[in-house]
Nucleic acid binder design. Sequence first.
DNA 1: AAACCATATCCGCACCAACGGATGAAAGCA
DNA 2: TGCTTTCATCCGTTGGTGCGGATATGGTTT
Lengths: 115, 115
Amino acid sequence: MQDVPQLFKALSDETRLRILGLLLEGELCVCDLVAVLKTPQSTVSRHLAYLRTAGLVNGRRQGIWMHYSLAAGKKDLHKHLVDLIRGDLGSLPQVRRDRLTLRRYFSRKGAGCNG
Amino acid sequence: MQDVPQLFKALSDETRLRILGLLLEGELCVCDLVAVLKTPQSTVSRHLAYLRTAGLVNGRRQGIWMHYSLAAGKKDLHKHLVDLIRGDLGSLPQVRRDRLTLRRYFSRKGAGCNG
DNA sequence: AAACCATATCCGCACCAACGGATGAAAGCA
DNA sequence: TGCTTTCATCCGTTGGTGCGGATATGGTTT
């Protein structure tokens, strides 16, 4: 049972929810998240580690960059939570704002961690 | 947005999840929860207050006793979380054990807070 | 009113988690 | 090798949270 409260705890922080909201758009690397969230790199990295431990996020190393993406749920409760994230997180105002910032950021920046 | 992390935080504690698991069986009063969880009354009461603030639980006073029950979700995310609780919490081993204890407790005890 | 009951809140303590700058580790390039 | 970039981890500080015994509140009974 111990992992269930832990799973909810991973979702009980605004920064982590914003990160998940951005990852709804697809795989992102840490520098993208830092740029969009306007949050110190150490803070973003720490939250990503938290989400990875909880099994909510996958990391993929490509050269210098770490790319993170939403993980597929494994057990039932886990899976249903991921569905809930995909379904409901996008309608939160802060998440909408962040996604707009992300789009503007992508169109502004040249070739970087994701080509 | 601030209430969304708060909602998840309410679910990030084992005692609170066990309380919700018991409330799946129906309305209960505080003394029932204390007896089944074998946890100090002040602790149970504090967690109930937390769940009530988060909107996950309703309290109803009947004479001396306070009866608590699962609340219906209001916003989409809230509603989906309540559905998830109803659907998945019952399969956790600890919740199953607690419910067994509850049934045995009910059959053993005479007229009390719920007749 | 007084005694009694179930419940809520107070209190001090311990611990955990978030923060963000500084440092460390790993990969790529000159 | 040495330098740069990206990311992870360390560190000290701060605020939040759980704990459980003690106390307060509010309703019931006599």
